[in-house]
Each structure stands twice: as structure tokens, then as C-alpha cells.
Design a protein around this nucleic acid. Structure first.
Lengths: 246, 246
DNA sequence: GAGCAATAAATCAAAGTCAATCAAAATAAA
DNA sequence: TTTATTTTGATTGACTTTGATTTATTGCTC
């Protein structure tokens, strides 16, 4: 690929999404991270993008409050990466994979390997990422929620029920023996519940801090999904299927 | 093959795709790489293309330092901006607005003002933009198409039919008295057709270059939508509703 | 603020690309 | 036809780009 072609592709991506990491670009452009860094340096010097630690941003969105967070969400990023790395190993060729909205699952997308699978998501920013990486993508439609870019509501629920997923990955805000998996809002819970019911095998990705937490709305009981986490939780969860990193 | 023939062929190729490698050209022109390099040098000196390491680019798509402000240097961008500016004025409070996929409509989103309207789109990158700008957003789900980030296919068509839009904005690849509004692919045409049928009022945004052009698949007859364009087309279009910038 | 992991820059070898040269082929002129 | 001129393709060594490796820096956690 010509250098100039890479330049154009990078700028094109930054029109669609305000920021991108070096690692992601390296995958999309099929070039080494060293080359991507050199490209970013060139484009930064030309002033057509802003170089930031870990990646690049479009000049327009640079420094507009919350976008700065987008490049690297800080909380528990390490654990989430490890959890996501474990999760991607479970995806096999010809799987129909449901990917829930949220930051944890976003990290999963960045690490996806299996090209011969179909990926379905209700998160518009996930969808754009998946397309950029060249995966077969289906987006679930519906009313969008502001913070998460996720489609929710009755239509989203109806749509998700049309599919049968062979495997699904979900985020959660709380895991509790009494309350099961929970989220802060009814809307999110409804779409998650609908999706999880249509997965042959469901996995909840949760860093260890989520155990014992309860948020207002339940979306599944604990035995409906295996839990992929970074640290063994206390023994009371023993009877559930817990997956730890190798 | 005559040198002048090769020159023409090279320039013709660069009109279709922004860049090409020396190796590729050598195969296409059945000439040695040395010859291709000489050709590129000649054309570069004439200023009709830009020589880059490994190949050549069309001058438009090559970003020089001066152009740093003008990243948005796609074709007819100025007209498209003006057209989009005219279009946004038509949106009123409590409208349910359908926004078609594509670059023209992307410019429209950037200029949106009316916060008390609901925006519906089948383009994931549009959806992300709309959310970022704080608009009430609904995304149409379905299989995604790689270049445009647009949901297409049967499910997208079914979904779009659930809505009734008070106003809709569409892009097109061709406007013709005989063929009506046309696009290059059936998939795109189907979703456009379904959406346009559910708009109380539909507008096609098209710069003047689109008049008289025909691409393979029709998605609407001319009287189904008003056309917002930058220059008055020839009189044969007089009986249709043409909107020009103020 | 020290220690740690992640990211960036510097360095280097390998691969790829370029311009110069020259002989062969094609074209033009005699 | 013969000779002069131009164009082409192959070869060479110089130069550029790339990816891997090493070294330095950054930002985060405690």
C-alpha cells in the first residue's frame, strides 16, 4: 500500500470517528505500528490531524471534553483488555456473534481475529469500528442512547429477537447472587435481556470490581451466562461458570 | 502503444481511483516499470498528476501542506455545503427527519440546528455524529455496507417502513427525466425507495452535475421528491419542484 | 514521587523503489 | 535501404521505506 493511500485512509477514518489508536490503525492498514506512527507524525506536521498519546484525533474534536476520554477510558482498562483477550478466543468461524454496547466490548472488538464470523451489535460506534476493521457487520436499529451510542427501545428489542446468535458477549454494571446481572436503566436491561435470550452461549465480561454490586434493573440470572473476569471471585459464586484468563 | 495513449490511460485511471502504483501501471499498460516512471515524470511536470513514492496520485486527492485547512476537499464540496445549508432550513420543531446515507447528507448533519426534532438514519457514522451533536437519534438496523457505513438489506427495509417521517433528505447518483433518481446498487435503491415512500415530504440533495446522469438502479420517480440543487438545471426539468439556494 | 506497564523514538537490516546508463528496438529522415 | 534519432527495457548502485529490535519516554498506580 502506498504511503499516500494510508494517509487518505487515516483521514477518512477520522472523519467518521474522532479518534483512533495506533494499534487499530495498524490492523486496518495492515502495516506495522512503527509505520503508523510515522504516518501520524507526517499528518500531524501537516496539521491535518492531532497526534495524541496512543493514537490520533481529528482536529475538530480535539480537546472537546469527553472525547479525550474516548481514546483511552481509564477505569480498569488493563483488566478489561485481559478479559477481552480471553473472550475473543471463544469465537469460531461461522459464528453469529452478538456484541453488546459499552466500553468493555469495545476493547473486545479491537482484538477480534475471526474474519469468518458475522458480528451483530446495537452500538453504532461498535458498528463503525467493525466496518473499519473489515468484519461482516449487522447493526440492530432503534432509538439511540446518548452516552453509549446504543440502540435501545421497543424496536431494538423486536429487531434483536429476529436473530439467533451462536455466541454473545455482554457488559454489566453489577453481578450479585441475589439480583443477578444488573444495569442502571430499564431500557438497557430490556435489550440485553432480549439479546441474551437469543444467544446459544452467552458470556458476561466483567472485571472483578463488579462482583457484589447491584444496580437498579436486572437483565439475566447468573446461570444464563458464563462470566469472564480477571480475578477469582469469592466462593459463593462457585456454582456458576467463571472463566479466568489463561 | 504510443506514449500519448499511455498518458491518457494513466490519467483516466486516476480519475476513477485516487492513486495507483508503478507496478500496477506497468501491468495495465504492458510497459516496463522504467517506462511507467518516465511517463509519471512527464505528467508530474505537466502538473496533471502528483508523483509519489511508488506510484502516482490524482492532484485532488493528494493533500499538500497548503491544503491543510481543506481536508474536506472532495468533489463539489462547496456546492454540497450550500445545498445542505438550504436543506436544514426546512426542518421544523417536532419533525421526524429521515437522513439518508452518504457524504452529502453528512454535510447536512454538520449544519443541523433544530434540536426539537427526531433524526432517523440508516448510516452508523451519521448516527454517531448525530449523537455527538446531541440530537434525538434513531438508527435503522440491518446488514452494513462497507464503504458507506449504511445499513441495507431486507431487515433495514422492513425497519424503515415502521416509521413515518415528516421530512426526508436523500442523496442520489443520477437524476434523469427518463430514469428518475438512480443509484449504483439494488441494495441501496431498495432502502432509499422504502424510506422515501414513508416521507410526507422528500428532498433529494444533488449538485448540478447529477442532472442527466443515469446509474443502474432507480429508487424513485422525479415527482416523488423536491430537488435541492445549486444551479438551475435545463428547462426540461421545469415541471418538477426544484429548490435553489437563496 | 518511585515503580510499572504502555507507548514513542531511535536504530538498523531488509525490501522496495528510483534515476542513470546503455544497448536494443522502433521510428523518422536521408 | 541506410543512417540518425527517439523510445524502450534491462541493469546497476543509490536512495527510501518498512518492520523488528532496542532504548527512551510517558502516564498511571500505589
Amino acid at each position: 500500500m502506498l504511503a499516500a493511500q494510508r494517509y487518505n485512509k487515516i483521514l477518512q477514518i477520522l472523519k467518521q470517528r474522532h479518534s483512533i489508536t495506533v494499534t487499530e490503525l495498524s490492523k486496518i492498514l495492515k502495516a506495522s505500528e512503527a509505520t503508523v506512527r510515522r504516518d501520524i507524525n507526517v499528518l500531524h506536521t501537516k496539521g491535518v490531524l492531532i497526534k495524541i498519546y496512543g493514537g490520533a484525533m481529528s482536529p475538530e474534536s480535539y480537546l472537546t471534553t469527553e472525547e479525550k476520554v474516548q481514546i483511552r477510558e481509564t477505569v480498569n482498562i488493563k483488566q478489561k483488555m485481559i478479559i477481552a483477550a480471553q473472550a475473543v478466543k471463544l469465537i469460531k468461524a461461522s459464528d453469529v456473534v452478538y456484541i453488546d454496547a459499552g466500553t468493555t466490548t469495545s476493547l473486545l472488538i479491537e482484538q477480534l481475529q475471526e474474519k469468518n464470523a458475522t458480528y451483530v451489535t446495537n452500538d453504532a460506534s461498535h458498528a463503525v469500528k467493525l466496518m473499519d476493521l473489515g468484519f461482516e457487520t449487522i447493526i440492530i436499529g432503534g432509538n439511540m442512547k446518548s452516552v453509549t451510542y446504543a440502540a435501545v427501545g421497543a424496536l431494538a428489542v423486536a429487531n434483536v429477537q429476529r436473530y439467533n446468535f451462536t455466541i454473545g458477549f455482554f457488559g454489566t454494571n453489577g453481578i450479585s447472587l441475589t439480583a443477578g446481572f444488573t444495569t442502571p436503566t430499564t431500557e438497557e436491561a430490556m435489550i440485553k435481556e432480549a439479546a441474551i435470550r437469543h444467544c446459544k452461549k452467552a458470556y458476561v465480561l466483567a472485571d472483578s470490581s463488579k462482583f457484589g454490586k447491584i444496580t437498579p434493573v436486572n437483565f439475566a440470572v447468573l446461570n444464563m451466562a458464563s462470566i469472564i473476569t480477571d480475578k477469582k471471585p469469592d466462593d459463593s459464586y462457585e456454582k456458576y461458570n467463571i472463566i479466568l484468563p489463561d
